[in-house]
Design a protein around this nucleic acid. Structure first.
Lengths: 355, 355
DNA sequence: ATACAAGTAGCAATCGATTGCTATTTATTA
DNA sequence: TAATAAATAGCAATCGATTGCTACTTGTAT
């Protein structure tokens, strides 16, 4: 506390030059000779100087900080996204302020305000489940501060966003279930206001339609997709005599499958089960779950990279409005052993998806 | 960009009072009448004022920001810790800067420097696996900026830290395995330089000793505790004719168990398996894993709360040097069905642990 | 009516880096 | 050698909130 902070003035005094020269010297400005720059750097090091971001920010009105708002932090998928974002931002010298909305629109609004008064240079957002409109981001839109949505993006297609093609993925999973023999496929999903769940459901419907399977309203089971989902849904699934289950995440697929087993059913012989995300759990339950690889880390990296690029190139003043990432169907034992030729077909499907 | 930011000066001018009064009024200082405060608040709202943290920080030399350094962000346990930290900090109005060391001491050192030049008010740290000494935190210690370690804490007992009693937990798991019939227990662990793994191993050894079981060096299998661990260790475990496995995390316990099953062994009949953390995966593999509840969210909350308390009470100038949280043994089928009386014994054990 | 205390509000310096503009020095050319 | 361009460095205002200190109002007690 006592040892005063070293400032550029101290360095300037020590070298008998002006503070402005030190300021410029420290960031390699061309109007300071290389020789002087070296001296400055040496003395700065020696005196234990550290730049004061606040003074700089106050002056430049930029913070080198990116805000991230997430529905919750403790899910496998989100953790991967954060890891990806952190990797990029840290490399580029940006700091991260992270908050969680806990699926509440109100808290999300408060988070946005926090981000706003912290004057983040940009905002990365995955929406809470009860966010229906995005007017609380107007603060940012009005000031032209970039906002990039990912994964759970708003319907408004004009905003910048990064996500996978959930409709296509839902379609592929369902089609796979059908081609492996399922005729009555239940779909465990989340809040249908959220694009990811709605889209997966639409994909599911498309596949049903394509194969002339009728859709019974009872097939769609809306849950919170948490661990309790298994116990809550298994009985309903049995009652509707379903022979296939497509869950919108691996957690619910896994717990549901376990509960089905507990009730005496065999997977995949009695009933096929598929999940979504390719979480660790999907690989370690018995039997391993067929699922869709949802590349969280990549989504995080791409979102962060787009944001940083945007912030650094004053030119590129609009982020490409939608970046759609590829995702892959991963077939495992929970949907039975499919013949080689089928697998090839899926591989083709996947490569088509990638384009 | 064009619409200039509203400052306290604008508000002052509008109300014909001094900026200092506005400043005080906005934070409810007692020297500003309630009436004036209301007027100020109203005008501030109307004009769309937002405080400029940088100006304030520059003046007060405090940032309202807490730094968090973690080994990696994408693990179930760490995600819970972050969620806990965020909850507390967000409530108390602190921002979070989060970085990951990716288990590298070098990156950790860079992270510390970043935190330092960002002038965080305090630092929460879980160490990387190759951090042997903590001299890179001297920057903070010297300046008396609080640093609180959690989970992976340094050996130096004089620094503030929050963690569970890993030795005791390791002891209880092992004792449970023994009392359920295991005599040759393998221990899958991580880098023994890390306190959590070392302590769990010591607890394991203590239980072995207590029950007069000899320890064979081959029993200790050091891995990265990742998903590959199962495939890598199962064969070795079979070769040493172990009848029990205690893994230092659930991921490795689960993958190991699955691999053992694939090799034709039955859990718990042929071999008992126990994990650590009570991750989602521990509840959803077959059979469910006996494990230890490692309360990540609670650890995060307590660490954050201690830090915030410390920052707010200038008085309490030293954080209690060690906060040890209780953790519970959770017995599931992977270690067999134990008679009721045994369970009672464990309940007692657990409540003893809590004191 | 005078004095004194409590309640309010303002003045002005301060925090440290940035940057447009000016001034000085050095190099280059006719 | 004088004149002009290029390189280098400094001046001083600026960003916006904070706070110790002073000053002005009220209200109350004597």
């Amino acid at each position: 506390m006592k040892p005063k902070e070293v400032t550029i003035y101290d360095i300037a005094e020590r070298l008998n030059i002006a503070a402005s020269t030190v300021s410029r010297g420290l960031k390699g400005h061309s109007s300071v000779s290389l020789e002087t720059q070296k001296k400055i750097a040496a003395i700065a090091e020696e005196m234990g100087y550290r730049s004061n971001n606040f003074a700089a920010n106050l002056r430049t009105k930029t913070t080198n900080t990116i805000g991230v708002i997430l529905p919750r932090l403790n899910s496998s998928f989100v953790a991967n996204v954060i890891a990806g974002i952190e990797k990029v931002c840290n490399n580029k010298g940006y700091n991260l302020i992270i908050t969680q909305s806990l699926e509440s629109r109100e808290k999300e609004i408060r988070n946005v305000k926090t981000m706003f008064s912290n004057r983040v240079d940009g905002l990365l957002v995955s929406l809470s489940e009860d966010t229906k409109d995005i007017s609380h981001f107007d603060l940012f839109f009005k000031k032209n501060i970039p906002v990039l949505f990912f994964d759970r993006v708003p319907n408004d297609k004009s905003v910048a966003s990064v996500f996978i093609n959930n409709e296509e993925a839902g379609y592929l999973v369902t089609k796979h279930l059908i081609s492996t023999g399922a005729k009555r496929i239940a779909h465990i999903s989340g809040n249908q206001e959220i694009n990811v769940y709605e889209d997966r459901f639409r994909g599911y419907l498309r596949a049903l339609k394509e194969f002339n399977l009728s859709f019974d309203e009872r097939y769609l089971i809306i849950t919170d997709l948490g661990e309790e989902t298994g116990r809550e849904t298994a009985k309903a699934i049995v009652n509707m005599k379903a022979d296939g289950v497509f869950a919108a995440n691996d957690t619910s697929a896994a717990t549901c499958m376990n509960e089905l087993k507990r009730l005496g059913y065999t997977v995949p012989d009695d009933i096929l089960v598929a999940g979504f995300n390719n979480d660790v759990i999907s690989r370690n339950v018995s039997p391993p779950l067929t699922t869709v690889d949802n590349p969280g880390m990549l989504i995080g990296e791409i979102a962060a990279k787009s944001m940083v690029d945007h912030l650094e190139n004053q030119m590129n003043l609009h982020i490409t409005s939608g970046i759609i990432l590829k995702s892959e169907l991963i077939v495992r034992e929970s949907t039975g052993n499919i013949p080689q030729i089928e697998e090839q077909k899926y591989a083709d499907e996947q490569s088509r998806l990638k384009d």
